[in-house]
Simulated scan of single mutants.
Amino acid sequence: MKAGRIDITDRVTAKLQDGEWVLYYNHKPIGRFVPDSAGTDMSEGFELDNGRLYAAYPDERNRLQGNYADDCDIGWC
């Protein structure tokens, strides 16, 4: 998963189900977190690194598209 990745932390939601937090990205489950456990269980193509969630893309052809206003610094995007 080292070819590339995009930070999706601000786009991930979570729902508490059966005592564990299920993580969602674009309304699809991408992982789960069980309180008081050793860590998270992430789906293939997703990773947790230093408190941030990332979606991986294996090469430039498969890169996930970000929001059109990502990295916009002119204020009206």
Rank of each mutant, 00 (worst) to 15 (best):
T9K: 00
A56S: 11
D36T: 06
Y54C: 08
M1R: 07
D36F: 06
C72R: 12
F33Y: 08
Y54S: 04
I6P: 01
M1P: 11
L23A: 02
L64H: 14
R63Y: 13
P29V: 09
C72E: 10
D18S: 06
S37T: 01
T13M: 01
G4Y: 04
D18N: 07
D70Q: 14
N67K: 13
R52K: 15
L53W: 02
W76C: 12
D7G: 06
A56T: 12
P35M: 03
T40F: 06
D70E: 14
Y54D: 08
L23S: 00
D49Y: 14
R63W: 14
T9R: 01
C72Y: 10
A55I: 09
G45K: 02
N50Y: 11
W21C: 10
D41R: 01
H27T: 15
F33W: 08
I74M: 11
Q65D: 15
K15C: 03
R52S: 11
A14Y: 10
C77R: 09
R63V: 14
D10I: 04
Y57I: 10
D70A: 11
T9M: 03
Y57D: 08
L53A: 02
M42A: 04
G45F: 06
G39E: 01
D41W: 03
G66E: 15
N26V: 12
P58M: 13
F46I: 05
R5D: 05
Y25D: 05
A69H: 15
I74D: 12
G19C: 00
H27W: 12
A69N: 15
G66N: 15
G66V: 14
D59I: 13
I74F: 15
Y24G: 00
N50M: 14
G39H: 00
L16Y: 05
I30T: 04
E44V: 13
Y24K: 01
L16E: 07
S37N: 01
Q65K: 15
F33I: 05
D71Y: 14
R11T: 10
K2H: 11
T13S: 07
G4M: 06
T13R: 01
A14G: 08
D73M: 08
H27R: 13
D41C: 04
F33N: 05
R52C: 11
R5Q: 09
E47V: 14
N26I: 11
Y24T: 01
F33A: 03
Y57M: 10
V34Y: 01
W21E: 04
L16H: 04
A38I: 03
V22R: 03
T13G: 04
T13Q: 00
F46H: 05
N26C: 11
C72L: 11
K28Y: 08
A14P: 05
R63P: 15
D18W: 01
T13D: 02
